[in-house]
Structures are given as C-alpha cells and as structure tokens.
C-alpha cells in the first residue's frame, strides 16, 4: 500500500515537473500562454527527446543486465560502445565492408570485449568490495580511451551514412536513424524479456541474480552464466554502437558524453530492473531535450543530473527497484 502510494506520487510529481519545464520558461520569456503552448518547435524537441530516450534505453539495457546479474558497475560500458562504433566505422569506411556485415561484426567485437572484461578482470574481483570492482572498470575506461586515441587518433570521424528524415507535420521532421534506434531499443527490451522469462538460460540467469550462493549450491554454473551475461551485455553495447554511429561522430572521448547518464539511468530505474531503466531513460531524455530547448544542451544535462541526485535521496532503490 505504502509502496504504491509513493509511486503514484512520483508519477504526479514527475508529470507536473515535465509540464512546468515544458511551458513555464516560454511563458516567462514571452509572457504569452497561447504562444508558449502552440510552439511547434517545443513539440519537435519533445519528440526528439522521446527518440533520444530510445537510444539511452538501449544503452542502459546491456549495462542493466550486467548490473542485475553480476552485480558489478561497468564504468567503462560507454567506452565499449565507443570501440564498437570505431569497429563499424573502420570496417565500413576504411575497408569497404557493407554495413549489413559491418554492424553484426561490430556487435561480435563488443560481445568479445564484454566476455574478455569479465574473464580477465571482473572474475578476479567478484569477492572484493563493490567499490574496487567499480574502480577496476574505471581503469578499463582509461585503457579503452587511450587505446582508441593511440590506434585511431583524436579526429572526429563520421560514417557518412545518413538515413535521412521524414516530415511528421509541415514543421516537424523526424530522423529515421533516431526512429530506428527507438524501435530497436523497444524490440530489444521485448526480446530480452522473452529471453529471460521463456528460456532455460534466461531462467538460470534470473535465478542466479536473485541468490548467488544458493543457486551455486543447487548446481548452477555461476561462472558460465556470468560470462554469458557479460557477453550479451557487450553485444548490446555493440547494438547501441550500430545506432549511435549513424547519428554521431566517433572520437575516443565520445563515451564520456553519454557514459555517466547511462549509469544514472540504470540506478534511477532500479539496478537490474529493465522496465525501470526504460522509464528512467525517457525521464532523462525529456529533461535533456526540454532543458536543451529552452536553455542550453548543457543545462539539460545539469537538470538531469540534479534530478538524479535528488531522486537518490527520495528513492535510493530506484523508481521500480526493491531495496536490498
């Protein structure tokens, strides 16, 4: 009862905040209610925010899986996405591999990286303090960034493939690549859900994330399940890379621009809770889009981070999570 009540309140507060952020700055600036409400570009940025939410949701999906199963925060997750983006860029633009092959190859590369990260680093740290696990992946963040700098240089590289955009109304254009990212993210959530609930492997993964010790005693191969989850998480990073490489330039530090927001989505959603992560991604993306529309893009991020900090105080277990 009490739990449901807080959630309802949260929804009400979030909705009020959303409406305020959408209209109040314009009303204050223009002094005209009708003008503020009928601003077509405001709605365009809302829709773009929704589509950005798809990308963020996809980004947080793999991290969330690893979080939920292995219980380790991969600070370097966004850097794996970056490596995937480079992989696709090089295969396509430099070696002329068609995108239809380059993209799956990129996913395989990041899945292999995810596998390696677990096998080489995390496996040895399963019993250490959580904070040491986090710091070790922080070391990997430096490592991946620097390797990319050494191997590819610091130039911004663009795949040069554009899917174009289509008009939704006379003034609002939607980019296909963003729409594709949104659709893929939604599809991925469904697939992952089906995988986790309908297959033997998925059931085993869920079981081990609920109780590590007991499941190991009952004969679940913990190490193997962790490896598989890490590889799937890495593969999801590659999938995110496929969609991001169509929208953004690649450079070694691209991970820093969406890395922090990805962890915060996972935590806000409730660690390991896919649905919560999905909702949190859209909350963040709307904050960024609306803040960016009325002020500056950076202010959008500031709002999102401040909101995250405030939410951690109100509900540390995340929107949908249970507190352990």
């Amino acid at each position: 009862m009490g739990k449901i009540d807080t959630r309802v309140w949260l929804v009400v507060i979030a909705a009020t905040l959303f409406v305020c952020l959408a209209y109040v700055p314009a009303i204050v600036r223009e002094g005209d209610f009708v003008l503020a409400v009928s601003d077509v570009f405001l709605y365009e940025s809302m829709i773009n925010g929704l589509l950005l939410g798809g990308v963020l949701a996809l980004l947080s999906l793999g991290l969330n899986l690893i979080f939920g199963v292995v219980d380790v925060v991969w600070i370097c997750y966004a850097e794996i996405v970056m490596l995937g983006m480079y992989g696709i860029y090089y295969l396509h633009s430099v070696y002329g591999v068609p995108l239809a092959i380059a993209m799956p190859a990129g996913i395989l590369i990041t899945a292999a990286i995810g596998y390696a990260v677990h096998e080489l680093v995390i496996r040895h740290l399963l019993d250490s303090a959580p904070i040491n696990q986090l710091l070790a992946t922080g070391g990997l963040l430096f490592f991946f960034q620097s390797v990319a700098t050494l191997a590819f240089g610091i130039d911004f590289r663009n795949l040069g493939v554009s899917l174009g955009s289509f008009p939704l109304t006379e003034d609002i254009y939607i980019s296909w690549s963003r729409l594709a990212a949104f659709a893929v993210a939604a599809a991925c959530v469904v697939f992952l859900y089906l995988f986790l609930t309908r297959t033997f492997m998925g059931t085993a993964i869920r079981a081990i994330s609920q109780d590590r010790e007991i499941m190991t005693l009952m004969g679940a191969a913990q190490g193997r399940l962790y490896l598989i989850s890490s590889a799937i998480g890495g593969g999801l990073a590659g999938l995110a890379a496929c969609l991001l490489v169509l929208q953004y330039d690649v450079h070694p530090f691209v991970g820093l621009s969406f890395g922090p927001i990805t962890f915060m989505i996972c935590v806000l959603g409730g660690l390991g809770n896919m649905v919560g992560g999905f909702i949190a991604a859209f909350i963040f993306s709307e904050l960024i889009a609306l803040g960016g529309y009325h002020f500056d893009l950076e202010w959008g991020y500031v709002f999102a981070f401040v909101f995250f900090i405030a939410m951690m105080f109100v509900r540390p277990e995340g929107i949908m999570g249970r507190r352990s």
Binding site: G139, L140, L141, S146
Partner: peptide
C-alpha cells in the same frame, strides 16, 4: 594517450 593506457 599511452600514459593513460598504462594508467588504466
């Protein structure tokens, strides 16, 4: 970037 790779 080599220094950061070694740090990492």
């Amino acid at each position: 970037g080599l220094d950061n790779a070694i740090y990492g």
